[in-house]
């Protein structure tokens, strides 16, 4: 397992670790009973940590901590209480509104920012509800093309997103509760101005041959745990991802799968649903499926890569 390389040593140098310590000390560590704790203006102090935990580190960094952060929180609350609707220009009318979001890909973070999508007869706007802020907007005249595009969510589901091409060359992605309706209304609102087709190719993704709920018997120091998640099979790879993990816990090259057995033991999906894969990279890997016959067929080594219905 080791090749004689010296182990990395962890560092405690505060110049390196202070941001992490701030995050962990404000978010983690034990707390005492709320009744015992000093309150500031009727807000128990622990509220600072809990709100920080909910908001996450990005928000804390974005708005500063403690005093600064609390002032920002107060300001948000005041603003959002006053008005939640979009500020319309003179003569501007709302065509439709639905919950949705904008994918921010600039700067230090990439991530969906949820809010409400407003299509007006002049603009397409994504508004954060609270604190109220325009997350992203474009004039309809700057929209060059619109397309629906499937995207796999963190939980492994497939959702339709709206991909927009703008006249300045930028591309944006929006989510919407009814993406098809938004696309249609947006196309109508931009009548005659849109390109017939996108000029650029969609981002290629390896074709999914099979996909569905799978249990993975994840090995741990204290003994393996059955965890529920999403299995996905392409021509080359089997991946398994839990909805609570950031990335897959299992990425197996299909060439590494040398054998497959159906076990007669009880698993989370009932008796007979457990599959044991022999692999060169991981030794035996156990999976359980609600539909073990199908997965066994797909995962059998040497099977042609093209899975047909």
């Amino acid at each position: 397992m080791t090749d004689g390389r010296p182990p990395m040593r962890p560092t405690r140098d505060p110049r390196v670790t202070l941001d992490d310590l701030v995050e962990v000390l404000l978010n983690k560590g034990a707390v005492l009973h709320l009744d015992l704790i000093v309150a500031v203006a009727d807000i128990p102090l622990i509220g600072v940590s809990i709100r920080a935990a909910i908001a996450g580190m990005e928000t804390m960094l974005e708005y500063g901590m403690m005093r600064d952060w609390d002032e920002a929180t107060r300001a948000w609350a005041e603003r959002s209480a006053v008005r939640r609707a979009i500020d319309l220009r003179d003569g501007e009318g709302v065509v439709c509104r639905m919950s949705g979001g904008h994918l921010l890909t600039e700067g230090i973070y990439t991530g969906w920012r949820p809010g409400t999508v407003y299509l007006t007869d002049q603009r397409l706007v994504v508004l954060r509800d609270e604190p109220r802020e325009i997350l992203w907007q474009t004039e309809l005249g700057a929209v060059r093309a619109v397309r629906l595009e499937p995207e796999r969510t963190v939980g492994g589901e497939e959702r339709l997103r709206l991909r927009l091409a703008l006249t300045d060359g930028r591309e944006e992605r929006l989510s919407a509760r009814e993406p098809g309706k938004l696309r249609d209304l947006l196309t109508d609102a931009c009548a005659g101005r849109l390109d017939g087709a996108f000029l650029f190719a969609p981002t290629p993704e390896e074709e999914t041959l099979a996909e569905g709920h799978l249990w993975y018997h994840e090995p741990r120091r204290g003994g393996p745990l059955w965890r529920g998640g999403q299995g996905r099979l392409t021509a080359d790879t089997l991946t398994w991802k839990s909805p609570v993990d950031a990335r897959p816990a299992l990425v197996l090259s299909r060439a590494d799968i040398t054998g497959l057995r159906r076990l007669d033991e009880r698993g989370p999906a009932g008796t007979g649903g457990v599959l044991a894969l022999e692999t060169t990279a991981r030794g035996e890997v156990r999976l359980a499926a609600d539909d073990p016959e199908a997965w066994a067929a797909w995962l059998t080594p040497g099977r042609p890569v093209a899975v047909t219905g």
Binding site: A30, P224, L225, W226, R227
Partner: peptide
């Protein structure tokens, strides 16, 4: 890893894990 001690915090991370068989 303190939250179990005083029971005030939600566990995060692998809370959905099912017991080891």
């Amino acid at each position: 890893f303190t939250e179990d001690g005083l029971g005030m915090r939600e566990r995060d991370g692998t809370a959905e894990a099912v017991g080891g068989g």
